[in-house]
Amino acid sequence: MSRVAKKPVALPKGVELNIQADSISAKGPKGTLSVAKPAGINVNVDNGTATFSSEDAALIPLAGTLRAILANMVKGVSEGFERKLELVGVGYRASMQGKDLNLALGFSHPVVLAAPAGITIATPTQTEIVIAGADKQAVGEFAAKIRAVRPPEPYKGKGVKYAGEVIIRKEAKKA
């Protein structure tokens, strides 16, 4: 059996797991998330833990994947996920216009991105963006979308980078 699938998922207080024939949903203080349940994988909830099993040997890796997704869902609906981005560069700014993120990144026009459903965006300072939400995949995808507008360049490090990301610098050309 998959090592990941053998490990049970602990359900914190306030988190409910609803298992249907074709889907699993987690409900908690931060919201509700659901995922499709593949046929042939058994999910059992008892004493505040969820365990995974499969009788078909070909589905054992899928049981481990489902366990990892469910663990992220449980953490998301109880604590939530957060990604921080930093803007590095002269004149690079971020601000909120209602629910839209307005970015000034050295282009001739401002870049305006609408927040997807279930995601909250905050700009504590002009050079910081904080993305939070219950769905880990949606938070990471939107953070990557913002970073892709102006990725950090290797000579001066200008651009949008994740907080704590190390940009490997290149030496300038010698004449």
Results as ranks from 00 to 15, higher is better:
Lys37Glu: 07
Lys37Tyr: 12
Ala39Val: 07
Gly40Met: 07
Ile41Arg: 07
Val43Arg: 03
Asn44Tyr: 11
Asp46Val: 14
Gly48Tyr: 09
Gly48Asn: 11
Gly48Gln: 06
Ala50Asp: 03
Ala50Phe: 12
Ala50Cys: 13
Ser53Gly: 14
Ser54Ala: 15
Ser54Ile: 00
Glu55Met: 10
Asp56Leu: 11
Asp56Ile: 07
Ala57Ile: 07
Ala57Asp: 09
Ala57Gln: 13
Pro61Met: 08
Ala63Gln: 02
Thr65Val: 10
Thr65Asp: 07
Arg67Lys: 14
Arg67Val: 04
Ala68Ile: 05
Leu70Ala: 03
Leu70Pro: 02
Ala71Cys: 03
Asn72Thr: 09
Asn72Gly: 15
Asn72Cys: 09
Met73Thr: 09
Val74Leu: 12
Val74Cys: 09
Lys75Trp: 04
Lys75Gln: 11
Gly76Cys: 13
Gly76Gln: 10
Val77Phe: 13
Ser78Lys: 12
Ser78Gln: 13
Glu79Thr: 13
Glu79Leu: 06
Gly80Arg: 02
Gly80Gln: 02
Gly80Ser: 07
Phe81His: 14
Phe81Ala: 06
Glu82Pro: 09
Glu82Met: 12
Glu82Leu: 05
Arg83Tyr: 03
Lys84Asn: 09
Lys84Trp: 05
Lys84Met: 10
Glu86Val: 13
Leu87Asp: 10
Val88Trp: 10
Gly89Tyr: 01
Val90Phe: 11
Gly91Gln: 08
Gly91Phe: 07
Gly91Arg: 05
Gly91Asp: 10
Gly91Ser: 04
Tyr92Ser: 01
Arg93Gln: 05
Arg93His: 10
Ala94His: 01
Ser95Val: 03
Ser95Gly: 08
Met96Cys: 02
Met96Pro: 02
Met96Val: 08
Gln97Gly: 01
